[in-house]
Design a binder for these strands. Structure first.
Lengths: 149, 149
DNA sequence: ACTTATCAGTTCTATATTAGAACTCACTAC
DNA sequence: GTAGTGAGTTCTAATATAGAACTGATAAGT
């Protein structure tokens, strides 16, 4: 299978990864969540090559995850912001953070944790079903394949 | 920056992606969640090349996400199962599915949704803080950098 | 005994992607 | 005029992936 075919796969995991599943894309999205909007700043912070960054920004814009806004004229300069579709990636980012803090501990004396903006206390993210409030686990939830053929 | 350096990055997003952030890995993990355990079956279902699959399985085993078990002798054959650390990736998978079903609609008449095992009704996954029950959004939660220097 | 099948890989070559550095273009500030 | 800013592009070398064939241990069929 070629990577380009993933975008039209019936499986949503494959379709998600066709947009954000390469080595750099979620790091670019992370920078956007941190409020970084400009090319040079992202490039320096990430250590990504300019070529690849330009390519990823194009892809993310095409996918509707980022919006490219001119913030000045003469010369025209653009910055990148998350769209609503991009902001909807927050649970993915939070889940990655939660998993990594458990599973891939930082080797140095530094860490990044998620805290409440109001109280400053660490949060412990869990997934629940909005309708019932039940936790979402492999035991409570399963994937259903709907073939409308 | 090189990819190999990500595993020791202070940012948990980078560390998570150093393990599961390449083009195929989360699809391999998805297969494991679907109960697929064997090399040939994964290879055929995913359309991944055998070379890359072998490499990803090695990497995931080294990261403690999968366990390699012999299921027969003469000749020895191995199968792969999720460890607890691997199962802890479920929220990431669920978040990806939820996002893709919203953001990257399937072009054909087929879909995959998450349903309750007990009632069969679709679930609507949301992240909350286990301690307070508050929803986790960009407005309620922020990242804190703790430098224990 | 010989052929085919199974199954987890390995090996090979062609192609695609990435890293790293230098360069472009349209300006602004000194 | 010279240097700086900032969003890219262009170039080459290194790396990773696609696709197909092959290996090695063994079982099953004829």
């Amino acid at each position: 299978m070629k990577w380009n075919d993933l975008g039209t796969d019936p499986c949503p995991v494959a379709r998600a990864l066709s947009v954000i599943g390469d080595r750099w894309t979620m790091l670019v999205v992370r920078e956007c969540f941190f409020g970084i909007r400009r090319f040079d700043q992202m490039q320096e912070r990430l250590g990504i090559t300019r070529h690849v960054l330009a390519d990823r920004l194009r892809t993310l814009e095409a996918a509707g995850v980022l919006r490219r806004d001119a913030y000045q004229e003469r010369p025209t300069r653009y910055e990148y912001r998350l769209t609503d579709r991009g902001k909807a990636l927050y649970p993915v980012l939070v889940s990655l953070i939660t998993w990594a803090n458990d599973a891939v501990p930082p080797p140095e004396q530094s860490s990044v944790t998620l805290v409440s903006r109001s109280t400053g206390t660490p949060v412990e993210p869990v997934l629940i079903d909005a309708a019932t409030g039940d936790p979402i686990t492999t035991r409570t939830v399963t994937a259903r394949f709907n073939d409308i053929s």
